[in-house]
Every structure is written in structure tokens, then in C-alpha cells.
Deep mutational scan, measured.
Amino acid sequence: EPSQADLDALLSAVRDNRLSIEQAVTLLTPSSGGGSGGGSMDAKEILTRFKDGGLDRAAAQALLAGRTPA
């Protein structure tokens, strides 16, 4: 399960175009075949909204942490 520091680094990389959204989703869902963790939004949607400015960093982190299976 990614830590808050991992999520923060991942969000920074996506925002700075050092990591594509697809690459980030793969890192967030290493063994689930890329499927959502059952959250209301999947990781790709969360990351896309964050990059487009629709979500701030704290909200994106909380959503990603919340949808990651324990």
C-alpha cells in the first residue's frame, strides 16, 4: 500500500509530466490488473482531475489513499 510520501511523489511526477497518468495508475495498482479498488473514482480519473486542476493535492491524495486496498 502506498504511503502518503509515495502518493505525494507520484502526484508531483504526474503534474510535472515526469510520469504519465497510465504509468501512475500501473504503479498504484500493481497486482489488481489495473482495476479500481472499488472506490467511487478510479485512480486514472483522480489523477486526470488532479492534473487538470479539478482536484487539489490533498484531495487527490485522500482519494487515492482511500481507494487503495489495505
Score class of each variant (00 low, 15 high):
residue 55 L to I: 14
residue 27 L to K: 05
residue 48 T to L: 07
residue 41 M to E: 08
residue 68 T to G: 14
residue 33 G to N: 12
residue 60 A to G: 01
residue 56 D to K: 05
residue 14 V to I: 11
residue 70 A to D: 12
residue 56 D to V: 02
residue 6 D to M: 14
residue 68 T to N: 15
residue 46 I to P: 00
residue 31 S to F: 07
residue 16 D to C: 04
residue 67 R to D: 07
residue 63 L to E: 03
residue 13 A to W: 06
residue 33 G to I: 10
residue 66 G to E: 07
residue 5 A to N: 14
residue 45 E to A: 07
residue 24 A to Q: 00
residue 26 T to M: 13
residue 17 N to C: 06
residue 2 P to C: 13
residue 7 L to G: 01
residue 33 G to Q: 15
residue 48 T to S: 08
residue 46 I to K: 00
residue 70 A to V: 13
residue 45 E to P: 02
residue 69 P to I: 11
residue 38 G to F: 15
residue 34 G to E: 15
residue 20 S to G: 04
residue 45 E to G: 06
residue 50 F to R: 00
residue 12 S to Y: 04
residue 65 A to C: 06
residue 59 A to H: 09
residue 29 T to W: 13
residue 20 S to M: 03
residue 68 T to M: 12
residue 4 Q to E: 13
residue 61 Q to D: 03
residue 8 D to C: 07
residue 31 S to I: 13
residue 56 D to N: 08
residue 64 L to C: 01
residue 34 G to S: 11
residue 47 L to K: 00
residue 43 A to F: 14
residue 52 D to H: 08
residue 54 G to L: 15
residue 64 L to P: 00
residue 12 S to N: 12
residue 28 L to E: 01
residue 22 E to V: 08
residue 28 L to Q: 00
residue 42 D to N: 09
residue 46 I to L: 03
residue 18 R to C: 07
residue 12 S to W: 06
residue 32 S to W: 15
residue 50 F to K: 00
residue 33 G to A: 09
residue 31 S to Y: 13
residue 37 G to C: 13
residue 44 K to W: 14
residue 45 E to M: 06
residue 41 M to I: 11
residue 41 M to S: 09
residue 59 A to I: 08
residue 64 L to V: 02
residue 3 S to H: 14
residue 57 R to C: 06
residue 3 S to G: 15
residue 24 A to H: 00
residue 35 G to M: 09
residue 31 S to P: 09
residue 10 L to E: 00
residue 13 A to L: 06
residue 70 A to P: 09
residue 59 A to T: 14
residue 30 P to C: 10
residue 54 G to K: 15
residue 37 G to S: 08
residue 63 L to P: 00
residue 48 T to N: 07
residue 12 S to K: 06
residue 25 V to R: 02
residue 10 L to F: 04
residue 59 A to G: 06
residue 66 G to Q: 11
residue 15 R to P: 00
residue 39 G to N: 10
residue 20 S to C: 03
residue 30 P to Q: 10
residue 54 G to Q: 15
residue 41 M to V: 08
